[in-house]
Amino acid sequence: MDDMKFPNVKEVFGTVSKEYAEFRPRYPSQLFSFLSSLTPHHHLAWDVGTGNGQAAVELSKYYARVVGTDTSEGQIQHAERRPNISYAVTPPSITDQQLDSIFGPESSVDLVTAATAVHYFDLDKFYGQVKRVLKKPGGVIAVWAYWKPRVDPAVDAVYERFFSRTYPLFHPAAKVVLEEYESLPFPFTAVEGIKLEIEEQRNFDQYLGYLGTGSGLVGREDILEEFRADFEAAWGAEVHVTKTVKFPVFLKVGRFEKKGKFC
């Protein structure tokens, strides 16, 4: 498939970094308390593809130091700051020397996370980096994403039509998200996860704001406008009234069990 007709992920998320920080849902706090319970030490966490830094901020409550990296300078500029978080704009492929300059010696990271991001990575390179930096034994990697907001039957019916119209515009990497990471290669010893769901109260503009941050919609705002009237009719006359919006979360967690090897 010719990727040239699909959006450049780095450029897209840099373009909508402000809107991304404002409209993307927040991950549930129990996710981070669960992940922190899996690592025997809490010295250093690495949040890869950190975006607006929301996962890094939650991790900073449990780990002494958090590093958030992203290829998008725009995203890093809008990332939330905390005293124990450091952010870095990195190239898509980080060299071993760059890893060492950021994290110090090999096997120094307790937890690596990728929140709604890993499907865009070169997995062979990324997993090789994880192998280098994670503590052995005891290091943990966790990747997760969410999909398809659910509101009520009327709004969801319009969303399904909207999704059918826009899905072909998204990068092919989105396919693994639609499959809830079931087809995502993950060469680690699996750790049983927890069932999670994001639940937020949103008004109509906030709901549409989220839809507009999809990578396939940037530069194609006219498509969202095509559906605005239908969404508004489904939402109801008082669009300022909030509704409960639910996003199912799917999670993969793994760890090293033997020094220097995937298990």
Rank of each mutant, 00 (worst) to 15 (best):
V57N: 01
E58C: 02
L59T: 03
Y62K: 08
Y62G: 00
Y62A: 07
Y63R: 05
A64W: 05
R65M: 12
V66N: 07
V67C: 08
V67S: 07
V67Y: 08
T69G: 06
T69C: 06
T71N: 00
T71E: 01
I85H: 02
S86C: 12
Y87I: 06
Y87K: 07
A88H: 15
V89H: 05
V89T: 12
V89K: 06
T90M: 15
T90K: 08
T90L: 12
T95M: 10
D96H: 13
L99E: 10
D100T: 15
F103G: 08
P105A: 12
P105E: 11
S107W: 00
V109K: 01
L111G: 13
V118I: 15
H119A: 09
Y120L: 11
L123Y: 07
D124N: 13
D124M: 05
Y127P: 07
Q129D: 14
V130K: 03
V130F: 07
V130T: 07
K131H: 15
R132V: 08
L134I: 10
K135I: 10
K135M: 10
V140D: 04
V140Y: 03
I141P: 02
A142T: 03
W144N: 02
W144F: 10
W144C: 01
A145N: 10
A145T: 11
A145V: 00
Y146A: 06
D152R: 06
P153S: 02
P153C: 04
V155I: 08
A157R: 14
Y159N: 10
R161V: 07
R161M: 13
R161Y: 09
F162Q: 09
F163Q: 13
F163H: 15
R165F: 02
Y167F: 11
L169C: 01
P172S: 09
P172I: 07
K175M: 14
K175V: 15
L178P: 00
E180I: 02
Y181C: 09
E182Y: 07
F186I: 12
F186E: 06
F188R: 01
T189A: 06
A190W: 00
V191T: 09
V191M: 04
E192P: 02
E192M: 04
E192W: 00
K195Y: 09
K195L: 12
I198S: 05
I198F: 05
I198L: 07
E200C: 13
E200P: 12
R202A: 10
N203A: 00
F204P: 02
